[in-house]
Design a protein around this nucleic acid. Structure first.
Lengths: 335, 335
DNA sequence: CGGCTGAATGTAAAGGATTACATGTGAAAT
DNA sequence: ATTTCACATGTAATCCTTTACATTCAGCCG
């Protein structure tokens, strides 16, 4: 791999000119440009990123941390983020924190170390080591949150209106005639889970059915929903609203295990609209989040910050959609 | 963020000593070491990675490309790889190529550019831009393949014995009494899909049932299996072996749509043993791959190459396991 | 006591690109 | 003909760290 010095020698110009050809071609006369480009191509030269980033203090990289890479929901967000990053001339480094604060901190250090220019985190916890960065900077810190958010964090965020989405789900069930509804939430610490729960309770209250809601706590994983579903079935609910499609999958499994059938005996509604949701048995009614768009917008927000754009949009709210498939139906008895 | 120069000044030593304290502490006297470390901590100094990597020509990063990040199978591989990388002092950059050769090439350039020290690719296609590197350095090129492999590529690889695993699945079905078996493969271009098909045909042939195998081509996605399953059901198969759990999910969905039930009318067996497989309806019989271990071993192999270890293990074969759950049973009629 | 050894530390040269500033050139303006 | 200006290009400093080599010094041996 040749260096810029060799390319310059081969093309009979200075290194400055080679650099300009590559980054500011308009400053170079056409014939010089063509000559240099020819050498670049024939020699297979590519600039050394370490040297470039040392000099420019930019890494052209964005770190995107997800709490659980095995969750298909995040996969779609990552895709959107990568596309938007590519458009803006950045590349995305994906980090899987496994919900582990230590790992989160480790990744966050990449930002302190300037290994990356900015951080997008999809969890709800802002790594402790970044607190100084956030409070210190007069200009906005290059940190953006996606999906989750905590108003008190002071970090720009992209998300849907979780309370409204959740209310939509509950209203759908109430409209179908359900009067005893189970809800399986995310972890108590998760702000969006709290929002969703608040939205569900609101909707039930508005319908005068506050007491018909049976709330159980899950952790977004299928396994956690199995247990809770058994419990809810014992309580006699006719419908279960899960705060993730994975949990809905666990719920469906538990419904089957109990010798019941969905949607005849129990309706199930999920959250996320994973690509696989349509292949659930029965195909899952769920709240669709604009996953790719969440990824895209977080990157755009971050890039704005990096470019020093005055960014008025601290909170971006995107549209959700209730996707009705076959896992919800009126309750058996009609009431 | 202070530089090493400021730290050196504060501690009253040279930059060389600071550097040594951080990377070769045994070369420094204890009191100097403690003094420097105190300054490092109080100033919050962290070495600038760009400068370090420029100087050492090492990035301490491994690029791991996956063909489809939304496939949960790869998530587990990624986790194993990250753990092993952490152990070896590397960090992992995950790239989602979406099966797109252009994107693969783009990622591969990170290696040419020395942005990363090595590449692990989980697809079956070696980016064209790496051919020169490979031919020049042969097996010493810092490139390792996981899951898939092509003997002709000349790249070390970690995988299971796909033919044997596939044979196990077919034998399981034959043992149960199935005499008309559908197989939904991966894309024809995928070497492991070919291996699995060969293994399936072998097993059937050994049992004198070569003609009872009905082969359909899928692409590992649930959607592709839905169509093929309809077709296979029309052919009258009593069991379907899918080369991925996602396809098995599609198959189960199609079986249900056809008004049939699994395993009573049709047995289904998958491949991968995704975390969700146990929550399928019914819980899925499948071939478990040691996903985390595949990730771990690919990294270990790559690190060996990077360290210049004579690496005798060009092909690492790991153990698979047939996990029997409830989606397979004897055929209804007994034949 | 001189010389040698080894441990601890310092000096300074890379490593490769970017870019502020300097220089040179030709054309337009006066 | 002289000045001016814009454009094209070159020079060299700079980004920060690592490390080969040089230096210093204390302790030991003969």
């Amino acid at each position: 791999m040749p260096t810029i010095i060799e390319v310059a020698a081969l093309a009979g110009v200075s290194t400055a000119t080679v650099s300009r050809v590559l980054s500011r071609p308009e400053q170079v006369s056409e014939d010089t440009r063509l000559r240099v480009l020819a050498v670049v191509r024939s020699s297979g030269y590519t600039p050394n990123v370490a040297a470039r980033s040392l000099r420019t203090l930019r890494a052209a990289k964005i770190l995107l941390t997800v709490p659980d890479i095995s969750n298909a929901f995040f996969a779609s967000v990552i895709r959107g983020a990568e596309e938007a990053a590519r458009d803006a001339g950045y590349s995305v480094v994906v980090g899987d924190t496994r919900h582990d604060p230590d790992v989160e901190d480790q990744y966050a250090e990449m930002l302190s170390r300037r290994e990356v220019d900015g951080l997008i985190f999809l969890g709800h916890r802002l790594p402790a080591s970044l607190a100084p960065l956030l409070s210190r900077k007069g200009a906005a810190a290059p940190i953006v949150n996606g999906c989750e958010y905590s108003p008190d964090l002071g970090v720009p965020s992209v998300h849907i209106d979780n309370a409204a989405a959740s209310a939509d789900a509950i209203e759908h069930l109430i409209d179908l005639g359900h009067r005893s509804i189970g809800v399986i939430t995310g972890p108590e610490i998760s702000p969006i889970s709290r929002d969703r729960l608040a939205g569900a309770i609101d909707a039930a209250t508005r319908a005068g059915l506050r007491d018909s809601l049976h709330v159980r706590i899950g952790d977004y994983s299928a396994g956690s929903a199995v247990e809770q579903t058994r419990d809810l079935i014992a309580q006699g609910v006719t419908a279960i609203f899960c705060f993730s499609d994975e949990m809905a999958m666990g719920a469906l499994s538990a419904v089957g295990d109990a010798g019941l059938s969905c949607p005849k005996d129990v309706s199930v509604i999920g959250f996320d609209d994973l690509p696989l949701a349509r292949y659930f048995q029965p195909p899952l009614t769920t709240i669709a989040q604009p996953k790719g768009m969440i990824g895209r917008r977080t990157v755009e927000l971050l890039v704005d910050i990096l470019r020093g754009v005055e960014s008025p949009s601290q909170q971006v709210t995107l549209q959700h959609e209730l996707v009705i498939r076959n896992s919800t139906a009126p309750p058996r008895s009609g009431d």
